[in-house]
């Protein structure tokens, strides 16, 4: 019994140590939103929003080659959910809002960005969340493609 407890304690200590290491590493990186264009996006289902993020280390130096993973909360879709930072530590995301309607009125969307690369043992990551303000579109936006052509009509 005592031996089991000892082993369990050792395992827990190791897990805590590894988690602590990753938690420490997570504090060593920072994800910041550099730009969002446009600042207020029409919820028309077509117009893209460009979001540029920058990852820096504890000394403020750009973190190159970090894999960022993003999730929109509240609707809409990203052209890619994972983007790798460039030489300048920057990553560009393209977000497409949903189309506002009576069933889903325009409202702000949260985009959560996680730095997957700073976690070694556990999933404890540096992260940030930004708000994309969505507004009711003034005019409808259409795709570059025509459904009638596709239908052959």
């Amino acid at each position: 019994m005592k031996r089991k407890l000892t082993i369990s304690a050792i395992v827990l200590a190791i897990v805590a140590l590894l988690a602590g290491y990753d938690a420490y590493r997570a504090t060593q990186y920072r994800i910041a939103l550099l730009s969002m264009d446009p600042q207020r996006a029409p919820a028309d289902g077509q117009s893209p929003v460009a979001l540029r993020f920058k990852v820096t280390d504890a000394s403020g130096q750009p973190a190159k080659g970090h894999s960022l993973y993003a999730l929109p909360k509240g609707g809409g879709i990203l052209s890619a959910s994972r983007v790798v930072t460039d030489e300048a530590g920057e990553a560009l995301y393209t977000y497409y809002p949903y189309k506002a309607s009576d069933l889903q009125p325009a409202k702000d969307v949260q985009i959560k960005v996680i730095d997957e690369s700073n976690s070694v043992f556990n999933e404890i990551n540096a992260k940030t969340t930004v708000t994309v303000p969505l507004v009711q579109p003034e005019r409808s936006a259409k795709s570059n493609h025509n459904l009638d052509d596709i239908f052959g009509e």
């Binding site: 289902g45 609707g75 189309k99 309607s101 889903q104 795709s143 570059n144 459904l147 239908f151």
Partner: peptide, 30 residues
């Protein structure tokens, strides 16, 4: 409008009714 909502959220399919939206993620593919 309902079909549009579905395809825009899913992002990779087309609506089967006239006047439905084409997801912007398909621009390059198409």
């Amino acid at each position: 409008e309902n079909i549009s909502m579905m395809v825009l959220e899913q992002g990779a399919s087309l609506g089967a009714v006239k006047g439905s939206e084409i997801p912007p993620l398909l621009d390059d593919w198409m």
